[in-house]
């Protein structure tokens, strides 16, 4: 009878995805393209926020393309195209998230050097996308006012992996029992360095601060590229 041996491994699960994500992040950094991952539940307003953001950034001379992740349909990509935004549709065919390999495939359809930013509209889901690094330089989640303020308790991992929380559809706040202070406290309990914006893409409230944060990310990547070239 062979002896049982214990082999120490200490390897992170999904390390293959993480490695590919790191390579994508570096590659995009070298081409000066900021990759932003936008995640939320279905219907939180990702498409509307992105369209309004892209429109405002265009006024600042920032060129954006979008990678649309959906289980089925090309509805969101069509909306982007109708607004004159270059969009690549990824249909996951049932998968509940995008991963780094899918983003790498989508990047073949884009010339990253042509864009200052590529935004990923992830599959509408607050659970699975949190697990998979897509290679984004910054990750954002949306939580819309109609969804309620207690979501940090229900989807803790998502709150720990994002850099920024956008509370969307704040035009629904009047008359609702949505407790912004409770959400902020709960979210920061999980992620003390989380940046929080309160935004209504419909009225434009809060859009400025959010767009500044995105523009800051874009500048960070451009500066990193220029710094690397100087060396």
């Amino acid at each position: 009878m062979a002896e049982i041996r214990t082999i120490d491994i200490k390897e992170a699960v999904l390390s293959e995805n993480a490695g590919l994500a790191d390579r994508l992040r570096r590659r995009l950094m070298e081409s000066g393209t900021f990759l932003l991952d936008v995640m939320s539940s279905p219907g939180a307003g990702k498409t509307t926020l992105l369209l309004e953001t892209i429109h405002r950034l265009r006024e600042r001379g920032i060129r954006t393309a979008v990678i649309e992740g959906d289980i089925e349909s090309t509805v969101d990509a069509e909306k982007m195209a109708a607004a004159g935004v270059k969009a690549v549709q990824l249909r996951t065919g049932g998968a509940c998230h995008l991963d780094a390999a899918m983003i790498e495939a989508a990047l073949h359809e884009l010339a990253p050097g042509d864009y200052d930013m590529i935004a990923i509209e992830n599959v509408g889901n607050l659970v699975c996308p949190a697990e998979f690094d897509t290679g984004a330089h910054r990750r954002t989640m949306l939580l819309s006012v109609p969804e309620g303020h207690d979501k940090a308790l229900k989807y803790p991992l998502m709150f720990t992996v994002v850099d920024c929380l956008v509370v969307s559809k704040t035009d629904y706040l009047p008359g609702s029992d949505f407790d912004l202070a409770a959400l902020r406290a709960e979210a920061r309990r999980l992620n003390p360095t989380l940046t929080v914006f309160e935004v209504s893409a419909r009225t434009g409230d809060g859009m400025q601060g959010w767009c500044d944060w995105v523009a800051d990310g874009i500048r960070g990547v451009a500066d990193a590229r220029d710094g690397a070239l100087d060396c």
Partner: peptide, 9 residues
């Protein structure tokens, strides 16, 4: 989410 070790023969 880490694989610590495996037992093998």
């Amino acid at each position: 989410l880490l694989i610590e070790s495996i037992d093998v023969v």
